[in-house]
Amino acid sequence: MVMAFAHWVHVDYLYFASYTILQFIVLATAWNILGGYCGYVNFGSAAFFAMGAYSSVFMHKFYPLPIPLLIVIGAAVSGIAGLGMGYLTLRLRGSFFAIATLALAVVLQTLVVNWDFVGGSRGAYIIRPETLEFAGYEINYIEYLFFLMLSLAVLALITARTIERAQLGFGFATIRDDEMAAEASGVPTLRVKLIATTISGAFMGMAGAPFPYYIGYLQPSSAFGLEYAVNSIAMPMIGGTTSWIGPLVGAILLGSAQQYATVTISSAVNLLIVGLMLVGFVIIAPNGIVGLVQERLRAWRRP
């Protein structure tokens, strides 16, 4: 009996921890589609994530829907927000977009704090069932959430990898390299950038949509948590920004390290380490871990 309980706790914890890491894979990949491929920095990942989470809270109170549909709604809300932010700022100098996303998080948090329907500053409880009936089987709810997030992570990675090899990937890279030369080569830069902000925002919203069900009680401070903004930048930067593998490596490495570290050391120290690693990597290894490995391989092949 005790053994069975220990086993149950263990497996459940594993699902909980893996969910968080998968969520970071989605966020880091989404950030990288705009940041790594096009070279535009989004500081407001937390805001896009929270928009997904709060659209689920809103729907939960207004008209409950199954989570896959909530993911679609979250994607739409955050994707449109990304499009709007891009449209307003991307016609101007590059840095305006970054600044606007930074301010977006503060303002959306202000709106949510003042919006009683979704719980305001007190937060909102989402009561989730213990189990779920699926094709005649009864499955554990946390397993269900885990598999949803796993599918999202796979979807995000496939999207990123497909873009890299398609016409769009070339378009993104020209924007990162030289926008004026891109226009002269016939790349519609504004449209390509807006596609990037929309896809990137939409995936962040998707990552956020199941979050209220995962956490059970959603507060503005947890949905807009700084760790989302920081990790979704740090993970691709540390992993490597030029290919889909980079964010994946970064998210698995930093994500599992943090899961381990929050148990052993305080979360502040934990975040401090992420911040220091971010600063260190951008200075010393601009192409991240993937870049370091590639350099090694090249040196090894050409002695």
């Binding site: 940041g35 790594g36 070279g39 535009y40 920095v41 500081f43 590059g94 840095s95 970054a98 990162r176 700084l226 920081v230 930048i233 740090a234 930067m237 920004t241 502040a268 120290v269 975040l271 401090l272 992420v274 911040g275 220091l276 971010l278 600063v279 951008v282 200075i283 601009p286």
Partner: peptide
């Protein structure tokens, strides 16, 4: 434009967390 911004973001963050600690 990319790494320079990430650098300042990192600094912002490291300063804040250090002050918290």
């Amino acid at each position: 434009s990319l790494r320079g911004l990430a650098f300042f973001f990192g600094l912002l963050f490291v300063t804040e967390v250090t002050l918290i600690l």
